[in-house]
Each structure stands twice: as structure tokens, then as C-alpha cells.
């Protein structure tokens, strides 16, 4: 109608009228949407090559109007390295989960950061292997019920959750490392700001950027999507704390 202005539009980088493949309320959708919004805003869609990973995060080519390269489980940063080293002017990012980037592929994540590869990694941390049905991963919380820890993860049996972002931040090649969450609208805005910053790091060629995003997995957390919102704030965040752990531009907080 007249006199109204459009303040939000579904990003063009998302394939039109195509839904996501995720469970209702899954955090992946929110992050994929934020990434698409930023790619539109930076105007880099035609210059971007995305690298998918293995897990719920695998289906990039089903919803993105982007060139996508696949990778073996945990090796997305290596495929991204091969691409970025071959085509340094392209915008290259990997989209991974806590299973891919922090469990099987943690060695690759760390070394990619140490080498300061000029790529960006977005790591969705929902403290579980979602695609395979909710098994415990490296970031699973102590006490968390999963299909492999049905009576709750016991530290004396399976150890403690890995603090991913803090560890990656210790790599000198990393230019920007943050952990955000996308449970509440406030957090979503902060998450977008962090991912924008990470993208800027790459566009300016300042080094490796890594954003870990705490996201809901209603199906495997056995909660409704709305219940996940408080669970993230009251429980997950206590272990996987939010914050900017490295920012070579300066210590400015998000």
C-alpha cells in the first residue's frame, strides 16, 4: 500500500520460495538467513564460494544461490583453503556444525586458524550431532542427555565439553574469533554484527575469522523451540560463554 516502506525482505541469496531442510525451530535456519542477508548487503553473492560440511549443515546448495563445494566430514576448512589459495579474490566461507568443526575436524580448524587462511568459518554449536539423531559431540554439556549419553553425560566417563572459540582465539593467525547465540532477537542482532565483522575481516584480507553460534536443536534437546530459548540462556551459555575472544582491529566488544 501507499506510504509504507519496506524494512525487511527475505534475502536474495536464499533460493526463492524454497524452504530449509531443518526441524521446526532449528537454529541453522536463522544463521543461514543472517549469512544470506550479509552476502546481499556486502553485494558479494556472485563472488562467493561456500563450503558445506557434513551434518545438518550439509545442504547449502539446496537453499543458497551460491557456488558450493562439498567436503569430507571435518575437512571443510581444507577445501576452503584450497579454493582461497587458488582464487584469492573470491569470498570463501565454511559452514559447519560442532560435530564437523569441533569434533572430527578440530585439528583442521586449529591449523587453518594458525596459518591465518583468509577464510571465514561459521560453526553452529548445538552441542550434539543433529543429523545422525542426537549423539554427544565434543561440545556436549556435562549432564546433557543424548542418544549416546542417555543418563546424561558423565565427565568421568566421557570427559568435558570443548571450548571451541576460546581455543581458536589462541591461534595467532586468527584475526577475529567470537561466540554468539541466536536464541533471542537481541542475540540475533548481536550475532549478525559479529558475523558481519568476521566477513569484513576476510574482505579486508586481515586473516582468519571464526564465529561460533550457539543454536537450538529442539528435536535432540527434547524441547519445543520456544523452550530452547531459555535453555540456551540458562544452561548452554554457562558453559559456552558468549563474547569476542579475539579482534585484531581492536578490543572493541560487540
Amino acid at each position: 500500500m501507499n506510504g509504507e516502506t519496506l524494512v525487511y525482505k527475505r534475502p536474495e541469496t536464499l533460493i526463492k520460495d524454497k524452504g530449509f531442510t531443518f526441524c521446526p525451530g532449528c537454529g541453522h535456519g536463522v544463521v543461514l538467513k543472517i549469512i544470506a542477508e550479509l552476502i546481499d548487503e556486502f553485494g558479494i553473492r556472485e563472488n562467493t564460494i561456500a563450503i558445506s560440511s557434513v551434518g545438518c549443515s550439509i545442504f547449502l546448495e539446496k537453499f543458497y544461490e551460491l557456488d558450493v563445494a562439498g567436503a569430507s566430514h571435518g575437512r571443510s576448512p581444507c577445501v576452503a583453503t584450497g579454493i582461497k589459495r587458488s582464487l584469492p579474490d573470491k569470498f570463501v566461507f565454511t559452514y559447519q556444525g560442532d560435530g564437523d568443526a569441533a569434533t572430527i575436524g578440530f585439528n583442521e580448524t586449529i591449523h587453518t586458524a594458525c596459518r591465518g587462511e583468509k577464510i571465514t568459518t561459521i560453526c553452529i554449536n548445538n552441542t550434539t550431532f543433529g543429523m545422525t539423531g542426537g549423539q554427544a559431540s565434543a561440545t556436549t554439556l556435562v549432564g546433557q542427555v543424548t542418544t549416546t549419553t542417555p543418563r546424561g553425560r558423565k565427565a568421568e566417563l566421557t570427559g568435558y565439553p570443548l571450548r571451541v572459540a576460546e581455543t581458536v582465539a589462541n591461534c595467532e593467525g586468527a584475526a577475529y574469533v567470537a561466540r554468539v547465540a541466536i536464541s533471542t532477537p537481541k542475540y540475533i542482532k548481536e550475532a549478525k554484527k559479529a558475523i558481519r565483522k568476521a566477513f569484513e575481516m576476510q574482505i579486508k584480507g586481515l586473516g582468519y575469522s571464526f564465529v561460533e553460534v550457539i543454536a537450538a536443536c529442539p528435536t535432540n534437546w527434547h524441547m519445543t523451540p520456544v523452550e530452547c530459548i531459555d535453555y540456551i540462556e540458562n544452561t548452554v551459555e554457562k558453559v559456552h560463554k558468549l563474547g569476542v575472544f579475539k579482534d585484531i582491529t581492536k578490543g572493541e566488544n560487540i
Binding site: 509504507e4 525487511y8 538467513k33 533471542t184 532477537p185
Partner: peptide, 12 residues
């Protein structure tokens, strides 16, 4: 911004 499906396609 919160919709995990990007199903809310326009806001005026």
C-alpha cells in the same frame, strides 16, 4: 529476524 525458516518474507 527470529524466523528460522525465513518464512516472514516482507515487513513494512
Amino acid at each position: 529476524e527470529s524466523c528460522p525458516e525465513a518464512a516472514i518474507v516482507e515487513v513494512y
